[in-house]
Design a protein around this nucleic acid. Structure first.
Lengths: 251, 251
DNA sequence: GTGAGTTTGTGCAAACGTTCACAAACGCCT
DNA sequence: AGGCGTTTGTGAACGTTTGCACAAACTCAC
């Protein structure tokens, strides 16, 4: 472990910073957290690395190494205390207080995001909705009124918002990102299919649905070329017969 | 390159399979493709690795290595032919014909996905919508009628669907996945916050919006702990004063 | 044709991530 | 108290990914 850890006697006490958590580990912690919550609801009080790994869809060695980075409190011969581990991970992820997020762009996708229940159950609160379209400003969605994007600085400050979602068309995303950064937002989740440029110190993550499908398409493409080859044994070479649409077909 | 490539004289002719394309490269190809389409629309006929890398948000050495894996046709001293590279990448990703996808679960998020224009412009066609809720079956969304999930096998076969999106609640997702696999679907994009177990040969990718936010939250947490520390010089040790909510504050 | 300038493709080394495999630590039973 | 079965935490090996740096290959101007 990267720094000494010695008990958390009365509540969470150390406020530790984890400067060198591997990024790959950070990306998996939320998945562990989800699995742990599910286990807790199902009545588990402890869980082995094997069991938690299965619930999170990873292998157990990786899970143990990940948890060891946060100096976790597993007990050899027993496993991990579910409640304690939940508290640990939530602390590391900064989920001890519910974070306010802003959503910019209430079109097709933005509308759905505004109504998505998964945010509120997992540590976040959609605190404000913005759009540039005058026809949409004033609309009420899920108890929130869509505000003019011009009011961004004011609202971001008032609600202590540090995270924002961009769900605008691609051509508007960079402008919105600039406005968000100017207003003080330091983390952006971008749903628009474009690259954002932001100053150092601002984090951007991207969700592009078409990209996910295209990656799947690659594997489909590869599978359809390979499944027509019944015996993977032999000399490992196969003849390829080109077809009309450019797909491969083993002969 | 992994296998010899020698021209594509009259149209796409080789139907090549790319058995050992690194997964990290595959995940970036769609981003290059998007950037290339944007460049093509802007009138570019060629582009340097530097220029394309900037448009895709990566560094140029990585881009060149990625493209070299597909035996690409850049010209030294000039760059890459935009149209040719688009054709190459689309071929590798299996986007030469438009793929039909099914969407299961037309709730809040599913509704938005059904109406998302980005799929059709980037190689996919939403061919069918399914739900288990009788109140939703028969509803018309974007020109498609929501069908009973019981009709999955029939429709998957008729429309030659190999990719499906799951946008159901988490508790229904595994059952839906089983039904999809039984119907012949071999790639799944899962929006439900849970782990799916599927047989070998079926690919699953996951999009979990709360996880993305939690990763951002970690970095926010880390930033807020560090920005209160003005001078990173010195002995590298800092005193931590615990506060009420368990956050750290440098003294 | 030749030289200057540009840009690709790649060998190599370092950084990063994963997996194995096992000693140390624990609970439990007698 | 001691031995046994279980499970964690981690050193070490391995594989993957990144980034540098440069030779080879190309265009263009003259």
């Amino acid at each position: 472990m990267s720094q000494q850890r010695n008990g958390q006697a009365a509540g969470v006490s150390d406020g530790g910073v984890f400067p060198d958590l591997p990024e790959a580990t950070v990306a998996r912690l939320p998945e562990y957290l989800r699995a742990l919550h599910h286990l807790a609801e199902t009545g588990f009080e402890t869980v082995s690395s094997e069991g938690l790994a299965a619930a999170a869809g990873v292998n157990s060695a990786k899970l143990r190494k990940d948890l060891s980075h946060l100096g976790s409190y597993g007990t050899r011969g027993v496993g991990y205390d579910v409640a304690l581990l939940i508290a640990q991970i939530e602390h590391v992820l900064g989920l001890t207080q519910r974070r306010a997020v802003a959503l910019v762009g209430v079109g097709n996708l933005g509308h759905a995001l505004a109504g998505y229940g998964g945010f509120s159950t997992r540590g976040f609160r959609i605190a404000a909705l913005f759009d540039a379209d005058p026809d949409r400003i004033g609309e009420r969605i899920n108890g929130l009124v869509v505000k003019d994007i011009a009011r961004l600085p004011e609202v971001v400050a008032a609600e202590a918002i540090s995270i924002a979602l961009i769900a605008t068309p691609a051509h508007a995303a960079q402008l919105v990102a600039d406005q968000l950064v100017a207003a003080g937002v330091t983390s952006i989740l971008n749903f628009a299919p474009c690259v954002l440029s932001v100053p150092d110190g601002v984090d951007v993550r991207k969700v592009d649905l078409a990209i996910e499908l295209q990656i799947l398409s690659f594997h489909e493409h590869r599978k359809s070329a390979l499944t027509t080859l019944p015996a993977p044994a032999g000399n490992g070479r196969m003849k390829i017969r080109p077809t009309l649409n450019g797909e491969a077909l083993a002969t």
